[in-house]
Amino acid sequence: MALRELSSLEKSLGLKKPNKYSTQGDKKVPVLQSNNGPSLTGLVTIATHLVREANRPELLGSTAEQRAVVQQWLEYRVTKLDNCPKEEIKTILQDLNQYLEDKVYMAGDTFTLADTLMYYGIHRIMVDLAVQEKEKHANVSRWFDHVQHYPGVRHHLPLLVVLRNRLYTSGHH
């Protein structure tokens, strides 16, 4: 999973030659093999490295504050979102929905790596959501739909349908 994700990220960053990856341990932690430098371990480390390699520093945040928030969500992605037990999904969605009420992007006012990795990470959850559930978490759905349409991001993942017009609830505010 993480490897396809990294390969999608490479493409979305416009990196020409693909890197070589392997995985480590039961949790299949990705490892970037490198010819000349040390190998790198872990999704966040490697993704951050790729962004730097592509010379897109703004994707890591343009201000100190935005950079910190990007890091926060990258960490959240691997510690909270990945492998989260089923019963926690509800809370995660609720929290995110609230967080995204007044935000278009995960960090700051512009698209960052946090959006890409959160999108990759939450896709498996969104796939399983019923229409009603998606409506209930309108802010998450709206953000998700925006990111999956963001130029060059989606790649390996199927496009999910997010309805614009409510079928069930009549507004959640």
Binding site: A138, R142, D145, H149, V162, R164, N165, G171
Partner: peptide, 11 residues
């Protein structure tokens, strides 16, 4: 804008 990020399309 409840279900949309921008007014028209996703940009």
């Amino acid at each position: 804008l409840n279900t949309r990020t921008f007014l028209v399309g996703e940009r």
